[in-house]
Design a protein around this nucleic acid. Structure first.
Lengths: 193, 193, 193, 193
DNA sequence: ACGTCCGGGACGGCCCGTTAGT
DNA sequence: ACTAACGGGCCGTCCCGGACGT
């Protein structure tokens, strides 16, 4: 059935958006259903695991999508500054466009689920692991010594996550830009090329 | 009344802990009441503004407490490495002691309230602003040029916030230590002394 | 669904009875639920509008039922005295049988909602309008001049409503009978036949 | 204490107004307190019997006040039409001035308390009895035969009470005027003078 | 399989009317 | 005379299954 898969996809997409903004506990199943224009029973057909399963899949999907965007931004032939600027523009653009509502697609759920549901926490952990992986290869390609790529990737991801939170809460993209500028300089300095 | 103020304080302290772990929407008023061993009506008496007011005050109080600890850690006569190590030990210690439950005392609520309650979001914003202020003076004292203190403080705070999230979600204090080590080096490099 | 509609009907019937006796604010949703032996979720399912919707439908239903009874009592081939006596017996019987608890099925809610919920007030208004309509046709049939039917119907309804209140409060059906006797005489005098 | 008595009086006056509009269960103690600008504990100081006592006294006081007004309206040297018109103007004026909020000062509480608190119901009963008494003497003075005064008074009071309800609910003073006109004619016809 | 109805309790946060303490 | 504190109840909504119809 085309319809069925479409409903499932729509459900997931809507859920991802709502979770990103409101977190896990702040988002109701009914809200997801309403926003998806999906009938009540459909959700449990497609997601027998209930709300938790929806969250896990939504996080995974969002993370994969963003992972691809990050990979593109840091792709072949880009210097650190350009790459990070692209990322900052992407994330900052979403933040601004949504009125400081859309931050990291994973963080809100991660904070909610860190205590609580282990499957969700694990999914968030894998999301971050995936991004770290993308960053690792990118840094390597930029000429950062192999043994520094891991920690530096962690620094990059952490700083961006933190900056997103700060920017979101303070309604000001300043922190995001300050951080990306700093990170670009750091990476440039670390690259031996 | 000693009793009265004590109840209020206990309520706030319990609430702060629960909000830190479970976020705003994940924490029920009844849960706070139970954990505080306080009767239901007391809460409404001390906090006519309801849950929102409790959250605002809990966040503000937690932030002030941590602010003092940060100030101590970066106090007179400490080099960047020592200071940041102390902070990392403090935060990482709490994280470990709680089984990766206690992260940043503000972040979980901030994510929940960024969309939603503006008073809470604002309180979180002020919490971060306060920490930035502490960092600013500390960096200044460490010999960082005045015009770099602001952005660098933002980088420090962002990175630590992000690292706390990563560590919490991945059940591994590695990110926290990686980030603090990097920040110490960065600050040392930036200080002209 | 037989089951579903039955629950809905039972809920409404119970609610109508309780509202009649205790008014809108005096009747709790839980009380309706208990008396109906229905779980809370059912009510929310059948009446998404909550208590207000329940009240509106309960009033409407009660009013329609009583409207039919009034129509019967004043039906073809009855003189005013007989008809009003039937109505008095019906209402007075209910009053006595319930120990002066069941008065007008609408009045208690109407008093509660006159200030407050406009939908409920409007439903009560339509209930009265419906009864006035029934009275109008009945009076017309009894030979009352057309231009007097409207005002006279209002007098009849008002007097009965007031008498029900007096009887209910004073635990004495005297007022009800006094009023019906007077009204019968008045109608007889007004009829040109 | 002048202050004390004044607080008590203010409390009662405010409560009477709120009960009249919202009924017994629809009116909260806090609302009364707020509107009276009285501190919480004062209420229980002046009314140890709690909400019920407040209601009883408020009803009694309102009833006495209105009783006096009715007596005036039907006082010496007035024909039935003039007297009832005055009453209709008084009650209808209040109704209009309040946007159809202020009906009979007793009826809303009476409906709420008819089932429920017996002291309140009894107070309402006495209020009606008092008005009937006033009507009885007035009718007697107007030349209505003694044995008809009782029933006719009941009819008058009932009809006015019912008309107030109808007018209030339908947001139209028509019923009140229709009823008073009819009653005036009835009384005139019944008077032997 | 797919979707829907209906039902099921359990809490959600808020506010109630009330009583101790002083 | 009044502040502080008390529980219990309010209505609403939560996330979730069985039963039914397509």
């Amino acid at each position: 059935m085309i319809k069925g898969d479409d409903t499932r996809r729509r459900l997931l997409h809507t859920a991802a958006g709502l979770f990103q903004r409101q977190g896990y506990h702040g988002t109701g199943l009914n809200q997801i259903l309403d926003a998806s224009q999906a009938p009540k029973g459909s959700l449990y057909h497609h997601f027998p695991g209930g709300k938790e399963q929806v969250a896990v899949e939504a996080v995974t999907r969002s993370a994969a999508a963003l992972s691809a965007r990050i990979g593109d931004a840091l792709g072949d032939g880009t210097d650190p500054l350009t790459g990070l600027t692209r990322i900052a523009d992407l994330l900052g653009g979403r933040l601004l466009a949504s009125g400081y509502l859309d931050g990291c697609p994973v963080a809100a759920v991660a904070q909610d689920a860190a205590s609580g549901s282990d499957p969700i926490r694990s999914a968030c952990g894998q999301a971050y692991a995936g991004w770290l992986d993308v960053l690792d290869t990118a840094l390597r390609r930029l000429g950062v010594p192999a043994e520094e790529c891991g920690p530096l990737g962690i620094v990059v991801l952490s700083a961006i996550e933190g900056a997103l939170l700060l920017s979101r809460v303070q309604h000001d993209v300043g922190p995001l830009h300050a951080v990306t500028a700093h990170l670009a300089a750091t990476i440039t300095a670390a690259s031996t090329t």
